[in-house]
Nucleic acid binder design. Structure first.
Length: 283
DNA sequence: ATGTGTTCCTGTCCGC
DNA sequence: TGCGGACAGGAACACA
């Protein structure tokens, strides 16, 4: 579910109630999500001060005073919800147990952070902070799309020789990390590139425009607090707004929003995922 | 080495 | 209203 902008939105909501606070209690209510939790996870979390929260791709990284980092992935339906803090800013969710509340962290300062994940495609693991980037889930990730290492030459070299459609290539987290189905569709539409084009055959100038487009659509989405289709909620339980700005995603049969284009949005399936695009202005 | 299909799981929506 | 099927924002894994 959540792509980079949604994870960033969640992270920003968690910072004020987690950073500099201590995890007083960790209630781990099942042995696993997508994979088993690490050994003694609750004990390794309890009593630890949260030094800082960071994001890498779609992962939330919680650096602990112990020198370990909690790695969190929200999968398709994961949420991190804040309730009951003493600042009075987070009243949305009552601190009562709900279905699919799998891990509950009680923080100093009064907030409770609940990891809720209906589909359980999410994940949590612990790794040494110092070497966390060598963790199996993080080691192969490509550059951050909003970072300095992601630029035209970077994407061009990664596309080189690739016969996969550009849509599939952009979903490959080893090429660039953090894009998902929505923002790939939107970025391709904004630059007028067909999702079916072979990645390796896109000319330099268009790759350059694609880089800019990816950065822009992600920035726009972060600014809007992410997108809410079914179940995305920020840490305060609220909806994002960017779904109203989609040009193609979820708009099959509706008219293309590009200025001067009278095409209509089509839906196809690529590598088992829906792709939305305008056959008229995306070539 | 690549590219694609399958799989994990629950919830929701749509047509009959 | 119930039921079956399609589909869902991810991504590891198996396989051609």
């Amino acid at each position: 579910m959540p792509e980079l902008p949604e994870v960033e939105t969640v992270l920003r909501g968690l910072r004020p109630v987690m950073e500099g606070r201590v995890i007083l209690n960790a209630d781990v209510r099942r042995p696993d999500l997508r994979w088993p939790f690490p050994e003694r996870m609750a004990e390794r979390l309890e009593g630890q001060r949260v030094e800082r929260l960071r994001r890498r791709s779609k992962y939330i990284l919680v650096d602990l005073g112990s020198g370990e980092t909690l790695i969190v992935h929200l999968g398709m339906s994961g949420r991190m919800l804040v309730s009951g803090d003493t600042t009075g800013r987070f009243h949305h969710r009552e601190p009562v147990a709900e279905r699919h509340d799998h891990v509950v962290l009680r923080m100093s300062g009064g907030a409770t952070v609940t990891f809720n994940d209906a589909r359980r495609f999410g994940a949590m693991d612990l790794a040494p902070t110092e070497s966390h980037d060598r963790h199996r889930l993080l080691a192969g990730l490509g550059p951050e799309p909003l970072g300095n290492e992601f630029h035209e030459d970077c994407l061009l070299s990664r596309f080189k020789g690739k016969k996969a459609p550009v849509k599939s290539a952009l979903l490959d987290q080893r090429l660039v990390a953090g894009l998902g189905n929505i923002y790939v569709c939107e970025a391709l539409h904004r630059v007028g590139v067909s999702p079916m084009r072979k990645a390796g055959q896109i000319p330099g100038p268009q790759v350059c425009a694609l880089v800019a487009s990816i950065r822009q659509v992600l920035s726009d989405a972060i600014e809007a607090g992410g997108s809410s289709l079914r179940d995305f909620r920020n840490s305060n339980g609220e909806l994002g707004y960017f779904q109203h700005s989609f040009d193609v995603y979820g708009r099959e049969g509706q008219s293309c929003r590009r200025q001067g284009c009278d095409g209509s949005v089509a839906r196809i399936v690529q590598s088992g995922r829906s792709t939305f695009y305008c056959p008229k202005c995306q070539r």
